[in-house]
Design a protein around this nucleic acid. Structure first.
Lengths: 198, 198
DNA sequence: TTTAAACGAGAACCTTTGGAGAACTTTAGA
DNA sequence: TCTAAAGTTCTCCAAAGGTTCTCGTTTAAA
């Protein structure tokens, strides 16, 4: 059975790890609880370890680990397909999506999109796009292109096979732009996209 | 468990590789962390290799490679903002996105969208939307609504405050639909969205 | 009133962490 | 091939953090 301050300590540690991705220092716990003495904190932490709630790596800085730490797999259930006018229909053979498998991979990174040049392709201002680094891309791919080594832009690529490429925006108020191929350096292509509505 | 500076080193390496497509030099890491001694960096890099986070090709210049263990942590580097006509601009204070934090949460699930009724809101046929289960939603939220307990649909909600609600599609070829409030059961609201271009 | 448990302060001690820099070996590029 | 640049290994040091104490105060129950 934990005393009040032991519980406070435990909660503080859990919150800290959730927030920072690493364990707190004893002095940080002390500050968080409004205590001046790290020796006191050590006593509480030791009690938590004795109770089996945490594990300690003696001597180590930030050497606290949570024991009930279930490897939180980034998996969301996939309930099915939604189409206007029909009930939600299950998708046979697929009932969950692993976000890591969905998006992670070597040489990938995110960019936050600013502007409306790709709205008609469903890429809105503020969206994040997942880019996979590459120097080549196929016709029709959406790519990050560097023009004259100074301007970066997100456009749909078309190779005209005459030494020029055309970058198509997906917005009818903007015009496609045609460049000599050597002026355009492809930095990667869009392989995914995410948006938050919060 | 990594020490603070080991973590800094790891993040710097990941970020560098994402940005430059090749591993950094020890001296570049040193400069990035504000350290003068490359011997110190070597010690940190060795610790990361021992922890299995990176692999080293001894002696080689830029001989650091990331291990696939990164797939366990669904974190992608966020390089910055891309706006047509401007170089990629770093976003101060944010240099990576944790997909789990971004999307995971209690009572959330995915639906695969079929149809074009929300294209003008950037929700395309085939996209996945992250739904958070709830019975109430605010005006303007995109919700999963169940009509007469049989039809499911994804629409933007408006409460008319007269006992009826209107469900707005985001597609000018479709019409808004007005229902008695009791015919419409909200099942959840869209809080995120993902798309794969592969 | 006595007693024990919970709480807190702080000192002394030792280990870990973080950093500088020299000397060396290896790699890569002209 | 030759050399500058990069990686490796080492010693030394300082600062910060964890550990272990002693001591005092408060609170509640016996």
């Amino acid at each position: 059975m934990l005393s009040d301050r032991q519980q406070d300590t435990y909660h503080f540690i859990r919150h800290y790890i959730a927030r920072h991705g690493r364990a707190p220092l004893l002095s940080e716990i002390a500050e968080g609880l409004g205590i001046r003495s790290k020796g006191v904190i050590h006593r509480y932490v030791q009690a938590l370890a004795d109770a089996g709630l945490i594990a300690l790596q003696p001597g180590r800085h930030r050497g606290i680990t949570l024991t009930d730490e279930q490897a939180a797999e980034p998996v969301l259930p996939l309930l099915g397909r939604i189409a206007a006018g029909q009930p939600i229909e299950a998708i046979p053979g697929q009932d969950e999506v692993n976000l890591a498998e969905f998006f992670m991979g070597p040489d990938r990174f995110l960019l936050k999109v600013q502007g409306d040049s790709m709205v008609e392709a469903g890429i809105l201002d503020g969206d994040m796009v997942v880019i996979e680094r590459c120097e080549q891309a196929d016709d029709g791919d959406v790519v990050v292109a560097l023009i004259d080594d100074e301007e970066a832009t997100l456009k749909r690529l078309q190779d005209n096979r005459d030494g020029t490429v055309t970058l198509y925006p997906a917005n009818s108020t903007f015009s496609p732009m045609r460049f000599a191929a050597e002026r355009v350096a492809i930095q990667g292509r869009v392989i995914g996209q995410l948006r938050s509505y919060l």
